[in-house]
């Protein structure tokens, strides 16, 4: 899954330790090299707590709350449960580079909602690049 994410944080949000993020992730771009992949979308809201905002290595914990769905593509499959809620907890870290202007993050964790009929698994992780706007 690939997609854009936008985050917001300021000093009044727990001295910059709390960051609020929203993301849209999709498998649609992967169709370029895996043409039969299910077309799946994730819409996520993620509060993140930063433990080391002012250091290069910044451990984080976060929740992911959201919704996911995939395209059914043909009437044969109209009865499939093609959507699910998401509630995940993750730990990870951010690398604050160039005085915090740019950085990398990585996190992994567990999704508590993985229904029998879904394309949602309990193990989750994320990796990304960010820049300050």
């Amino acid at each position: 899954m690939l997609g854009p994410e936008i985050g917001y944080s300021n000093y009044s949000l727990a001295s910059h330790r709390l960051q609020l993020k929203a993301a849209y992730l999709t498998s649609r771009l992967e169709q370029v090299f895996r043409e039969n992949i299910l077309r799946q979308d994730y819409f996520l809201f993620s509060p993140v707590w930063h433990f080391g905002r002012n250091s290069i290595f910044d451990p984080t914990i976060q929740m992911d709350l959201g919704y996911t769905r995939y395209d059914i593509e043909n009437g044969i499959f109209k009865d499939l449960d093609n959507d699910s809620w998401i509630a995940a907890a993750q730990v990870g870290f951010a690398l604050n580079l160039f005085q915090g202007e740019y950085g990398l993050y990585y996190h992994l964790g567990y999704n508590f909602i993985a229904p029998e009929s879904s394309m949602v698994y309990p193990g989750v992780f994320g990796i990304g690049l960010w820049m300050m706007l």
């Binding site: 039969n36 299910l38 995939y70 593509e73 499939l80 029998e116 009929s117 879904s118």
Partner: peptide, 16 residues
């Protein structure tokens, strides 16, 4: 359509 062992979405993946 309801299966406790094999997720029905597998049929869509096979069809595709």
């Amino acid at each position: 359509k309801r299966d406790g062992s094999a997720d029905p979405v597998g049929a869509l993946l096979i069809w595709k």
